[in-house]
């Protein structure tokens, strides 16, 4: 599980969003520490959509602009839960390893 997917799924758990919204949210929520590149974001979004973790549809944003909104599906929620577990395990392990070294 790539961290990028985790970021996407976590962002969308808060509610449906479009690609640009996701980049903004990741940046803001991480206090500017993390950023998502468009070149990786969109292929990842489309892959997740094809896998069934996301559904997408065209709609109008509050600002009145057409955008493709991505939404977590049931499978997406499960995937997110699993990804969080994995990430926690990995980060705990990493933290211990870093301290030891």
């Amino acid at each position: 599980m790539a961290p990028l997917e985790l970021l996407i799924l976590k962002t969308l758990k808060a509610g449906p969003n479009h690609g640009f919204g996701i980049t903004l949210h990741v940046q803001e929520a991480s206090g500017g520490l993390l950023g998502v590149e468009e070149g990786s974001l969109y292929p990842a979004l489309h892959r997740l959509e094809k896998d069934g973790a996301l559904s997408a549809e065209w709609s109008t944003t509050q600002a009145g602009r057409r955008a493709r909104l991505y939404r977590l599906t049931a499978a997406g929620h499960k995937r997110l839960a699993k990804a969080e577990d994995q990430w926690n395990t990995v980060s705990k392990g990493m933290a211990k390893l870093m301290r030891f070294a």
């Binding site: 479009h18 640009f20 468009e38 969109y42 057409r66 955008a67 493709r68």
Partner: peptide, 17 residues
């Protein structure tokens, strides 16, 4: 609506910002 539209929408939003 295609990939081209999605991309365009993304760029337009950033430009607006």
């Amino acid at each position: 609506m295609s990939w081209r539209d999605e991309m365009e929408s993304h760029i337009a939003m950033r430009a607006e910002m």
